[in-house]
Amino acid sequence: MQHSIRRYGKNVKLSGLSFGAEAAFHLILGLFSIACVVPFIFVIIISFSAESSLRTVGFSFMPNLWSVESYQYVFRWGDQLWRSYFNSFFITAAGTVISVLICILYSYSLFRRDFKLRKFFTFLSFITMMFGGGLVPTYMVCKNILGLNDNYAAMIVPLLVSPFLFIVMRTFFSSTVPEALIESAAIDGSGEYRTLFQIIVPISKPGIATVALLNALAYWNEWFIAMLYIRSAKYIPLQYLLMKMQNQVDFLAKNSALIGAEAANIVASTPKENLRMALVVFIVAPIACAYPFFQRYIVSGLTIGSVKG
C-alpha cells in the first residue's frame, strides 16, 4: 500500500503525461470501456422494444415504439421467476460462504511451509486440475453416493472446491502474511485455528473478497449442474431457466419434424427473442449492481497479493 501511494503521489505527477498523450490514453481506454458495456445496454433497450418495432426496424438503439410487453410476459410466469430468482440468490450465498471457508482452510495449510503434508495436499489438488473421471461416473457418484439429487445441496456441493482458487488464495497468503507473525502467535500459545481466524483472516480480507467474488460468479452463472441434478421446477435457478429455453429452441430446431403433430404448437409456444433478452437482463442486472462493490476489494486484493516482500 505504501508503495502504491507513493507511486501515485506527487512523484508521478511531476513527470506527468503530456496533454496529448493523456488524451490519447483516455481515448483508447474510454472506447474500450464503453465497448464493454454497450452490448448490455443494447440488450436492455431490445427488451423494452415493442414487437411491432422489432418487426419494422429490427434490433435498434432507437426503437420506434417502447413497450414492457416482454417483461409482462416474464412476470406472467410469476411464481417460477421469483422462485428461480430466490434459488439463484440462495445457492450463490450459501455456496460462496462454504466454498470460501473451505478455500481459506485448505490454502492456509498449503501456505504453511512447515506443514509436513503440504506437498501431498498440493499434489492432490493439482492433479484434479488436469484429469477428471468424465460425466457419467461423476454424475453417478454425486447422485447415488452423495445423494445430490433434486435438492439445494446438489447445486452447491459440486462447485465447492476450485483448485485454481486454492493457488490464488495461497499466493495471497504467502505475499501478505509474514511468517514471523505466525511464529510469534505460536509462541504466544495461540492454536492454529485461532491464529488463522483471529490474525490471518482479518489481514487477508482483500484476498478473501477476490475468491468470494469468483466463487459467487461461478454459482450465479451455473446451469449445467442444475440440468444434471435438478428435476423439479421448484429448485431451478435463473440461469438454468434461460438455458432451458435455449435448449428447447435448439432441440426443436433440429427435431420438430420428428415429434409429430403437436410440434408446431410447441414451437409456437417457445419464447421469442425479446423475451429471452428480458430474461438476460434479469440475469445480468444483479451482477451489474453487485460487482462494483466487490471490485473495490478485488483490485486492492490483487494489488496486495502481488506486492513482494
Binding site: 440440468m227 428447447q248 410447441i266
Partner: peptide, 21 residues
C-alpha cells in the same frame, strides 16, 4: 414422475441409463 423437457431430456436420459439410475 421426472418431467423431462425438450432438449434436457436428451442429455439427462443418457446419463441416467448409462449410470444405472
Amino acid at each position: 414422475v421426472i418431467w423431462g423437457t425438450w432438449g434436457d431430456f436428451d442429455q439427462n436420459v443418457v446419463n441416467s441409463i448409462n449410470g444405472g439410475d
